[in-house]
């Protein structure tokens, strides 16, 4: 038992230490960084870095852009995926195997190879350098995985429920709205959470498609900040801690569904 807890303690330490360090540097005054060396906790702490990031930098705007993109993506994907997952779960139709295979395929080919063509195709459409373009791209990338996730939630609801409702005279749509939808709300919440986290983290396409500071998402903004002011460690890490907050909130929200989510999209990060 002691060995068991000891081994778990090592895992906990390894998982938490980087995040602890991020937090620690973010509250360390810049002057102490160079004079105190490596300490577990600074002799003086400060909120100055957070004040700067929140009040004097572009980060609130980046934050807002990321929230818009992530929420927009998550909402649209959840609706599309619910419809697709419902069809996968409740219908046998010609071409179903093919469609599912194609969706699975999209999870396996390297998305990075789409960066150049998507950029070039989107310029004439006016979809580069704005949030709409990012949402369009993220919706397409996240829908296949979310559809399989939603399918697994629909599969968990017995068919008899809607069949009973349909025998009682409901149309399929009414049965869907009155019986199935309320039962699958937690599943839709989980899908929303997964997609939000994925969109919040996406970096490479945002780097390629977004140029102007106004439209930068948080990852792009933070990376730009890092390459420009690479000595302001405290400020960078304060921004990092702030980027962590929404991701952790959504993580807490989807914890119950982790296993379902990871097995539905077994290839998804």
């Amino acid at each position: 038992m002691v060995g068991h807890y000891g081994a778990l303690a090592l895992y906990v330490l390894f998982a938490l230490f980087p995040l602890y360090w991020l937090l620690k540097i973010s509250v360390t005054p810049n002057s102490l960084l160079y004079t105190e060396g490596i300490t577990m906790w600074p002799s003086v702490t400060t909120w100055e870095n957070y004040r700067f990031v929140l009040l004097q930098s572009d980060f609130p705007a980046f934050f807002k852009n990321s929230v818009i993109v992530s929420l927009g993506t998550a909402a649209i994907v959840t609706v599309l995926a619910a419809a697709t997952g419902y069809a996968f779960s409740r219908f046998q139709f010609t071409g179903k195997t093919l469609v599912m295979f194609v969706l699975l395929l999209t999870q396996m080919f390297p998305l990075v190879m789409l960066i150049a063509p998507i950029f070039r195709l989107m310029v004439p459409l006016g979809l580069t350098d704005n949030l709409t373009g990012l949402i369009v791209v993220y919706v397409a990338f996240n829908t296949p995985f979310a559809a399989f996730l939603m399918q697994s939630f629909f599969d968990g609801i017995p068919r008899e429920l809607e069949e009973a409702a349909m025998i009682d005279g409901c149309t399929r749509l009414t049965a869907l709205r009155r019986v199935i939808l309320p039962l699958t709300l937690p599943g839709m919440g989980a899908t929303l959470g997964f997609v939000f986290t994925a969109a919040w983290s996406e970096l490479l396409f945002a780097l390629m498609l977004i140029n102007s500071t106004d439209a930068m998402t948080f990852p792009v903004g933070l990376l730009t900040f890092v390459s420009k002011f690479s000595v302001d460690f405290g400020q960078m890490m304060a921004a990092g801690v702030l980027a962590l907050v929404p991701a952790c909130l959504f993580f807490a929200f989807i914890q119950r569904y982790l296993i379902q989510g990871l097995t539905a999209g077994a290839v998804k990060g």
Binding site: L8, Y11, V12, A15, L16, P18, L19, W21, L22, I25, L33, Y34, T197, W200, S201, L203, P219, L222, L223, V226, F233, M236, M237, G240, A243, L244, A247, C248, F250, F251, Q255, L258, G269
Partner: peptide, 25 residues
């Protein structure tokens, strides 16, 4: 707690570890 790293956005994981390897901080 042990599952938490998975929730950390990848760009932030990268930055955090880059900073951990940086002798200054």
């Amino acid at each position: 707690v042990v599952f938490l790293p998975w929730a950390v956005p990848t760009f932030l994981s990268g930055l955090t570890w880059a900073w951990l390897f940086n002798p200054v901080v």
